[in-house]
Design a protein around this nucleic acid. Sequence first.
DNA 1: AATGCATACTTGTCTAACAGTTTTCCCGGG
DNA 2: CCCGGGAAAACTGTTAGACAAGTATGCATT
Lengths: 238, 238
Amino acid sequence: MSAGTSRFTLAPSSMIDALYESMRQRIINGDIAPGEKVTEARVVGEYNVARPTAKACLERLTAAGLLHRTAHRTAVVPELGVDELLDLYFARDCIERRAVQRLAEQRTVPAEARRAQEDVERAVADEDFPHQVEADIAFHTSLVDAVGSKRLSRMHELIMGEVHLTMGQFQAHRTTDPRTVAAEHGAILAAIEAGDPADAADRLSAHLRAAQDRLVARSARGDGAPGGPAERAPRVDA
Amino acid sequence: MSAGTSRFTLAPSSMIDALYESMRQRIINGDIAPGEKVTEARVVGEYNVARPTAKACLERLTAAGLLHRTAHRTAVVPELGVDELLDLYFARDCIERRAVQRLAEQRTVPAEARRAQEDVERAVADEDFPHQVEADIAFHTSLVDAVGSKRLSRMHELIMGEVHLTMGQFQAHRTTDPRTVAAEHGAILAAIEAGDPADAADRLSAHLRAAQDRLVARSARGDGAPGGPAERAPRVDA
DNA sequence: AATGCATACTTGTCTAACAGTTTTCCCGGG
DNA sequence: CCCGGGAAAACTGTTAGACAAGTATGCATT
């Protein structure tokens, strides 16, 4: 949410917030698989909340891109195809590229990003994959937030839900060399510190491009989400 | 089966959609003034709907930036200060600049933009200011939509509500020379058609910059939002 | 004058219910 | 055997009323 000015994060105060957070975790962790249907009644049954509450929760998840839903139809966890993935990373690059550019102009390296990068390296050393994903997201988010633009952060947040989703799906298949990621992060921070906007932007784009290519390759291998439009997965939800 | 993008827009099907649209119009037209409180009970009374419906409507308006709200407090129409305005246009430039850049790379001039520009010119000739604002928004939106990126369009939509708000507030004070706007639009389209991404991007940025400066100047004149806690001088940043 | 308390207003959530739409599935016909 | 029609089930959209909890405001007190 709006991490605005307060330095401390506390537990969600609202019931809907709590619901949203819990459901969000379950979706991005793959606990609720892509293609699986999520009815309002199901949420009501699982959490002992009223239907309007569940409805509001699903609406938020839909707004965050973590669920797809059309009128009168059941919400489903999206399976992102290759084209969707390219679109997602195009939008992501648009925001983050501008962010690091601006940071390099001001030569401000956010302390939060430094911390997040250390977290990434620690997670890599521990081979703690969930934590690594979490720290990676935190790194990129901190870069955008450091710009200080509420709107830029909001737009970024709008997208990172889906990014997290793809990485969560990716998490099970740890085919990446994590040290590469950490090194690229370091290079981006160095370029910002050097005050070279163009270099920082290009390094960030390259970093995102690499991540995108990994995801596309995995998808093309027929591993995760089906790319074809008319491909109906024989998925039976339990 | 071809559930692609429908070519025709029809009236909102859902009650909440209708409510949202109506309230949206009233806010951006200044019918509901900045700083004015909008309680759920008020919406219930004005439209004869149930409170949850009104609540959902206010939540959507809040998500679109057309209302500000914190927990347990009444929603209010935001009065955008100078710093908010700069932030808004920074984010807007980020999106639209990338959009026209991409369009120029592909040398695709969207027919919708052409139509919108003609609409602008017609509105200018008729001195129909509401229509002019509407057409201007449509022009910029069509540029972004023409890229074909769902996420880029969504991010843009997230911001244009507030942009519309500022223009709506601006609408009453018609101090702009509208022909300039139309000319700048034409130049952008020409650059796209010429296939010059850098030129198109720069022309768009200049166009937005001009609009931003007009709004800042008006706000500095003490015309617009006076409620700002720290009245700051129009700080120009590239 | 500043502080603390009580009241009114507003929001957050719940229960129950009905209407409309989509999906499912069974059944009859080709 | 496969296909189309139609009834039933499931799900969502919306409403009504109610209670609890939080915030803001005004009054009384120190």
